[in-house]
Design a protein around this nucleic acid. Structure first.
Lengths: 187, 187
DNA sequence: ATTTACCTACCTATAAGTAGATAGATTGTT
DNA sequence: AACAATCTATCTACTTATAGGTAGGTAAAT
């Protein structure tokens, strides 16, 4: 892994762990032993770095979408759950949540990239829900896009809450409720 | 309103709008025309200020709990919805969400105060759910505390999402879904 | 006489970013 | 193949701005 990728990965960790306004180039420089000016070479501004981090997430999401193409809706949705569970157990939050709370402090290009990622995620989950409904596995709903948003935001803030509580026992229980709530004939 | 209260209110706004690490004493000083050192007089450290902000929220919550004591569970829960709706239309996030994403950058006393607030909120919502179940208005659930958390996280992330989308048309729709989901005989 | 609520004038640390140098790899030209 | 030009990825050293906080003074209220 080259330095540029390393920088993105460290930035990703710091961002998700501390928030965008609470990590600096110096933090990165200390971790991977590179001067801050060299980070500026790769990412002239912090916004550029933020965009790179989101792009990485976007690519990972696209990979997941492709890889799970032929799986069942339940397997797909579980993939999503696992992702948030892992965040939670690592005391991290979703990138959307991490950036949204300070949204008004980010500049336009970064905000657009975040919106981009969010839309992709929403669209994917919406399609999973539709698929599940067509296969009569998931309960029907009038507006599955809305339901998708609800599902995502649920998971997002769930990891946030469990972070405060400093014990993520509740997360499994809640995720079970959410899944149950999605399925037909759950009992 | 005296300066101290003004400082808390401005800090509250800035915190909810931008996050804890993205506002400074200078920001406050510019808005209410006071020197930063005078803010330090009232709140020696930023942590002290943060704690004061949360305490304000805690008091408001306690007031709401007292005021709505004799109302129906539905009315109480609607009170909660209204609060989040207002946040959402003002492009703000819930204080819990605002502080959680940078949680690891906050020091202990502030974190404890946040936990305090969160617990109070969870307990209140749990008691509303229990009451509603006893009165056969809400669906029963095995673990109402878990369900309370789910409800809160739902609302928390709702405001975050509407912020990203930069349009809160979906808010009402989602709130209706959540409420419907709570009630027995909803149709 | 003391406390309250402010002030001016600092300090130290850090943030983000810039300027200019350099060693080493890559590429183009004859 | 030899040589020059250019590019890549890093460095040192700097600037400007801001953050959070401190020291010490002062006018007015209690």
């Amino acid at each position: 892994m080259n330095k540029k990728e390393q920088i993105i990965n460290i930035a990703d960790n710091l961002l998700i762990e501390k928030g965008f306004n609470a990590f600096s180039y110096k933090d990165i420089s200390k971790i991977i032993d590179i001067k801050t000016s060299s980070i500026h070479y790769h990412f002239p501004t912090k916004t550029d770095l933020g965009i790179a981090v989101i792009k990485k997430h976007l690519e990972a999401l696209e990979q997941t979408i492709i890889k799970t193409k032929d799986k069942t809706p339940i397997e797909k949705i579980k993939k999503l759950f696992i992702y948030y569970k892992r965040l939670s157990s690592n005391q991290m939050v979703c990138i959307v949540g991490a950036l949204t709370s300070g949204l008004n402090t980010l500049n336009e290009p970064l905000r657009i990239e975040l919106l981009n990622f969010t839309n992709k995620l929403i669209d994917w989950v919406t399609s999973i829900l539709n698929e599940g409904q067509d296969q009569l596995i998931f309960k029907t709903s009038t507006d599955s896009k809305l339901k998708a948003k609800l599902l995502i935001t649920n998971l997002m803030s769930l990891v946030q809450l469990s972070r405060i509580e400093h014990q993520n026992n509740s997360i499994d229980g809640i995720i079970d409720i959410i899944l149950d709530d999605l399925l037909i004939n759950n009992n």
